[in-house]
């Protein structure tokens, strides 16, 4: 039984609670770096590493950090790991470091990481938090990989930089541009909606609970009633 639940913690991030397509967290990097598969994978793995490390540290310190200053403490821990990743990438993968640019530093404000810290790591043991980090990070990487694959194949007619013979001549640059990013993301969410119809957990009380925009966000179910009254 115990093992089962650990396995489900690990696996839920990939599809059922996929942070990008189901919970719609961390949209900025999802749109920004997915014009090619290599950038998408680099971003996904970097964010997953930060997520796993910060989950472990935050859950280990969960009894030490006072409740009142927990968010600033989480941000410092996350920012520390982001800086480590930046330095490592700059040293060993300088090309990817240049390609990702500012977006690497912006992992700090990626709501997936702070969200998991607040929703999961601050309430669970170190092992469970690590598994959750792997699952969620893996789900994030998977989502970015899907986006990157669609956009690179259609937009540049290549995959991971390798040219695809026929598509190469009929590439549609629209997909590598900003507008194409929004479009592909919208279509992929619609596809996931269709597949997981009724099975995926609702956003209610999960994705929104920790989002800093929840008080004014009109997508938040809690605000729907007041919005209707206002009408």
């Amino acid at each position: 039984m115990e093992k089962q639940s650990k396995l489900s913690i690990l696996l839920k991030g990939f599809i059922k609670e996929n942070p990008v397509f189901v919970l719609v967290l961390g949209t900025c990097p999802t749109l920004a770096v997915t014009d090619s598969v290599s950038r998408a994978l680099g971003m996904g793995i970097a964010a997953a590493l930060v997520l796993i490390c910060s989950n472990i540290v935050i859950s280990a310190l969960r009894k030490v950090i006072p409740d009142k200053v927990r968010i600033p403490s989480y941000i410092v821990i996350i920012a520390g790991f982001v800086t480590i990743i930046q330095m490592l990438m700059n040293a060993y993968l300088p090309d990817l470091f240049t390609a990702l640019g500012t977006y690497l530093a912006l992992i700090v404000v990626n709501c997936i990481i702070l969200g998991r810290a607040e929703m999961f790591a601050s309430k669970h043991t170190v092992l469970e938090s690590a598994l959750d980090g792997i699952g969620m990070g893996g789900g994030f990487t998977l989502a970015l990989f899907c986006m990157g694959t669609v956009r690179e194949i259609l937009g540049s007619g290549s995959f991971l930089g390798f040219k695809i013979p026929f598509l190469q001549d009929y590439s549609i640059p629209f997909f590598t541009q900003a507008a194409g990013g929004f479009f592909v993301f919208g279509v992929l969410i619609a596809v996931v909606n269709k597949i997981t119809k009724g099975k995926a957990i609702s956003k209610k009380g999960f994705g929104c609970a920790n989002c800093p925009s929840r008080t004014t966000c009109q997508e938040n179910p809690e605000n729907l009633d007041s919005a209707k009254e206002a009408k």
Binding site: Q177, F182, F185, G186, I189, A190, V191, K194
Partner: peptide, 23 residues
């Protein structure tokens, strides 16, 4: 709007068109 496009997907598609106009 088609059922599975309701909510966020159609919003993103609209954002795509606004973004195109800025291109």
């Amino acid at each position: 709007i088609p059922e599975s496009f309701k909510g966020l997907p159609v919003t993103l598609a609209a954002a795509s068109i606004v973004s195109m106009s800025f291109m």
